[in-house]
Design a binder for these strands. Structure first.
Length: 108
DNA sequence: AAGCTGACTATGG
DNA sequence: GCCATAGCCAGCT
Protein backbone atom coordinates (compact mmCIF):
# COMPACT_ATOMS: atom_id res chain seq x y z
CA UNK A 1 0.00 0.00 0.00
CA UNK A 2 1.61 3.25 -1.10
CA UNK A 3 1.62 6.41 0.97
CA UNK A 4 -0.56 8.01 -1.64
CA UNK A 5 -3.59 5.94 -0.75
CA UNK A 6 -3.01 6.53 2.95
CA UNK A 7 -2.77 10.25 2.41
CA UNK A 8 -5.97 10.23 0.43
CA UNK A 9 -7.73 8.38 3.23
CA UNK A 10 -6.40 10.81 5.81
CA UNK A 11 -7.79 13.74 3.87
CA UNK A 12 -11.13 12.08 3.16
CA UNK A 13 -11.52 11.21 6.81
CA UNK A 14 -11.13 14.91 7.63
CA UNK A 15 -14.17 15.84 5.56
CA UNK A 16 -16.87 17.00 7.97
CA UNK A 17 -20.31 15.45 7.73
CA UNK A 18 -22.56 17.52 5.55
CA UNK A 19 -19.65 18.61 3.38
CA UNK A 20 -18.14 17.23 0.20
CA UNK A 21 -15.00 17.72 -1.82
CA UNK A 22 -13.76 16.71 -5.25
CA UNK A 23 -11.19 14.25 -6.48
CA UNK A 24 -9.23 17.06 -8.05
CA UNK A 25 -9.18 19.08 -4.83
CA UNK A 26 -7.70 16.14 -2.96
CA UNK A 27 -5.22 15.47 -5.70
CA UNK A 28 -4.14 19.07 -5.67
CA UNK A 29 -3.80 19.06 -1.89
CA UNK A 30 -1.55 16.01 -2.08
CA UNK A 31 0.54 17.68 -4.74
CA UNK A 32 -0.55 15.29 -7.47
CA UNK A 33 -2.59 17.80 -9.42
CA UNK A 34 -3.90 16.26 -12.60
CA UNK A 35 -3.95 12.80 -11.09
CA UNK A 36 -7.52 13.06 -9.90
CA UNK A 37 -8.11 9.59 -11.36
CA UNK A 38 -5.70 8.17 -8.83
CA UNK A 39 -7.81 9.64 -6.05
CA UNK A 40 -10.78 7.84 -7.52
CA UNK A 41 -8.73 4.70 -7.68
CA UNK A 42 -7.77 5.20 -4.06
CA UNK A 43 -11.46 5.34 -3.22
CA UNK A 44 -11.92 2.05 -4.99
CA UNK A 45 -9.13 0.63 -2.86
CA UNK A 46 -10.69 2.27 0.20
CA UNK A 47 -13.28 -0.49 0.20
CA UNK A 48 -10.56 -2.85 1.40
CA UNK A 49 -9.13 -0.30 3.81
CA UNK A 50 -9.41 -1.42 7.46
CA UNK A 51 -10.73 1.97 8.57
CA UNK A 52 -13.93 3.67 7.51
CA UNK A 53 -13.42 6.14 4.70
CA UNK A 54 -16.37 8.41 3.82
CA UNK A 55 -15.88 7.98 0.10
CA UNK A 56 -19.43 9.16 -0.46
CA UNK A 57 -18.27 12.67 0.47
CA UNK A 58 -15.98 12.71 -2.53
CA UNK A 59 -17.62 13.59 -5.82
CA UNK A 60 -16.47 15.02 -9.10
CA UNK A 61 -15.88 18.72 -9.61
CA UNK A 62 -19.47 19.23 -10.68
CA UNK A 63 -20.95 17.72 -7.54
CA UNK A 64 -22.14 14.72 -9.53
CA UNK A 65 -22.18 11.24 -7.97
CA UNK A 66 -20.05 9.63 -10.64
CA UNK A 67 -18.78 7.00 -8.23
CA UNK A 68 -22.13 5.73 -7.04
CA UNK A 69 -21.82 2.47 -8.95
CA UNK A 70 -18.79 1.50 -6.92
CA UNK A 71 -20.75 1.27 -3.70
CA UNK A 72 -22.61 -1.81 -2.52
CA UNK A 73 -25.71 -0.55 -4.25
CA UNK A 74 -26.01 2.24 -6.85
CA UNK A 75 -28.18 4.15 -4.40
CA UNK A 76 -25.98 3.79 -1.30
CA UNK A 77 -23.92 6.90 -1.99
CA UNK A 78 -26.92 9.12 -2.50
CA UNK A 79 -28.70 7.77 0.57
CA UNK A 80 -25.66 8.34 2.74
CA UNK A 81 -25.42 11.93 1.58
CA UNK A 82 -29.13 12.53 1.96
CA UNK A 83 -28.78 11.27 5.53
CA UNK A 84 -26.25 14.06 6.03
CA UNK A 85 -28.65 16.67 4.78
CA UNK A 86 -27.80 16.89 1.09
CA UNK A 87 -30.42 17.53 -1.54
CA UNK A 88 -30.26 16.25 -5.08
CA UNK A 89 -31.37 16.85 -8.58
CA UNK A 90 -30.90 13.33 -9.87
CA UNK A 91 -27.28 12.58 -9.04
CA UNK A 92 -26.39 16.25 -8.86
CA UNK A 93 -25.81 17.74 -5.40
CA UNK A 94 -27.76 20.95 -4.93
CA UNK A 95 -25.93 23.94 -3.46
CA UNK A 96 -22.71 22.09 -4.18
CA UNK A 97 -20.76 25.32 -4.08
CA UNK A 98 -21.87 25.97 -0.49
CA UNK A 99 -21.27 22.37 0.53
CA UNK A 100 -17.82 22.22 -1.01
CA UNK A 101 -14.95 21.57 1.37
CA UNK A 102 -11.51 22.42 0.05
CA UNK A 103 -8.71 20.53 1.87
CA UNK A 104 -6.12 22.98 0.63
CA UNK A 105 -8.12 25.77 2.22
CA UNK A 106 -9.51 24.06 5.31
CA UNK A 107 -6.39 22.14 6.26
CA UNK A 108 -3.98 24.83 5.24
C1' DA B 1 5.41 -7.63 -21.44
C1' DA B 2 2.29 -4.43 -23.79
C1' DG B 3 -2.05 -2.31 -23.97
C1' DC B 4 -6.58 -1.06 -22.01
C1' DT B 5 -9.28 0.94 -18.49
C1' DG B 6 -10.97 4.33 -15.42
C1' DA B 7 -14.87 6.95 -8.84
C1' DC B 8 -11.08 13.10 -13.21
C1' DT B 9 -10.18 17.72 -15.08
C1' DA B 10 -8.91 21.48 -18.14
C1' DT B 11 -9.08 23.22 -22.58
C1' DG B 12 -10.56 24.20 -27.30
C1' DG B 13 -14.03 24.27 -31.04
C1' DG C 1 -23.03 25.02 -23.44
C1' DC C 2 -22.14 20.51 -25.20
C1' DC C 3 -18.70 17.29 -27.59
C1' DA C 4 -13.91 15.89 -28.54
C1' DT C 5 -9.02 15.70 -27.05
C1' DA C 6 -5.32 15.32 -24.15
C1' DG C 7 -2.75 14.67 -19.79
C1' DC C 8 -2.68 11.75 -15.77
C1' DC C 9 -0.73 6.84 -13.69
C1' DA C 10 -1.75 2.52 -11.07
C1' DG C 11 -3.90 -1.90 -11.62
C1' DC C 12 -5.76 -5.58 -14.61
C1' DT C 13 -5.99 -8.64 -18.77
Amino acid sequence: MSDFFTQVYEVVKQIPAGRVTSYGAIAKYLGTTGSARMVGWAMNAAASHPEFVPAHRVVNRNGLLTGKHHFDTPNAMKELLEAEGFEFDGDQILNFKERFWDPGKELG
